[in-house]
């Protein structure tokens, strides 16, 4: 069976990570920022899967399950925070949440 070379998978993971990072930096809407974080997490998870397949080790998949679990927890906490933010500031603009600056 022809397998994809590992570099392709890692390249895809890297591109996904950079897309997530750039959109995290340029987006001001906090929901989009949360989605960007999710993309970055999944990019890291993809890298683990690719590496696990390359060396035929189970740890890559184990790590991915960890990341998925953690991402679920993070999303629940993050959404709760976003709700509170929206409740207080009536906006989803993250730059408006600079009340504690300096």
């Amino acid at each position: 069976m022809n397998t994809l070379p590992m570099e392709y998978g890692l390249l895809l993971a890297g591109i996904l990570f950079v897309i997530g990072l750039v959109s995290l930096l340029i987006r001001r809407n906090i929901i989009f920022m949360l989605i960007s974080v999710e993309i970055m997490l999944n990019a890291a998870g993809l890298a683990f899967i690719v590496a696990g397949a390359r060396w035929a080790q189970p740890e890559g998949q184990v790590m991915f399950i960890f990341i998925i679990t953690m991402a679920a927890a993070e999303v629940s906490v993050g959404l709760a925070l976003i709700l509170q933010l929206y409740h207080n500031l009536k906006t989803l603009d993250s730059d408006a949440a600079n009340l504690m600056h300096g």
Binding site: L24, L25, I26, R28, S94, A97, N98, G102
Partner: peptide
């Protein structure tokens, strides 16, 4: 250093 604590989340990310 107090200047850097401006409360803008993307600035911290950067």
């Amino acid at each position: 250093l107090a200047q850097t604590q401006n409360g803008i989340l993307r600035w911290y990310m950067m």
